[in-house]
């Protein structure tokens, strides 16, 4: 049999309800069940989480930093998407 290693998984943990799942790190596991159990053992040993997602790293499609310009710079001048773009008199509070 050809030598096969345990693939790499990415682990996302929700620290508490109301918060999003955040990338915590990675680990190796042979299957999803093991990945989930290992993630629990590795990344929540200090009570850090209430929910875990695992996904095999190879299934993640990442943007390429070389395309940084075309992907992200066009958003830089869309200042009208931010609240500070709009001038309001000081009397208008909490808007």
């Amino acid at each position: 049999m050809e030598k096969k290693n345990w693939p790499l998984w990415e682990v996302f943990v929700r620290s508490k309800n109301g918060l999003e799942h955040r990338h915590f790190g990675s680990l190796h596991a042979a299957d999803a069940t093991m990945a989930l159990e290992n993630a629990r053992d590795v990344y929540t040993r200090r009570n850090e989480g209430v929910s875990i997602w695992v996904v095999e790293s190879k299934h993640i499609t990442a943007s390429n930093p070389e395309n940084h310009g075309e992907l992200f710079e066009p958003a830089q001048d869309k200042v009208y998407r931010h609240p500070t773009f709009y001038d309001l008199p000081d009397e208008v509070k909490h808007m």
Binding site: W6, H28, A29, E37, N38, D41, V42, R45
Partner: peptide, 11 residues
Amino acid sequence: PSLETDIACTN
């Protein structure tokens, strides 16, 4: 057999 199983057994 692996770091991951070490951590699990210690838990």
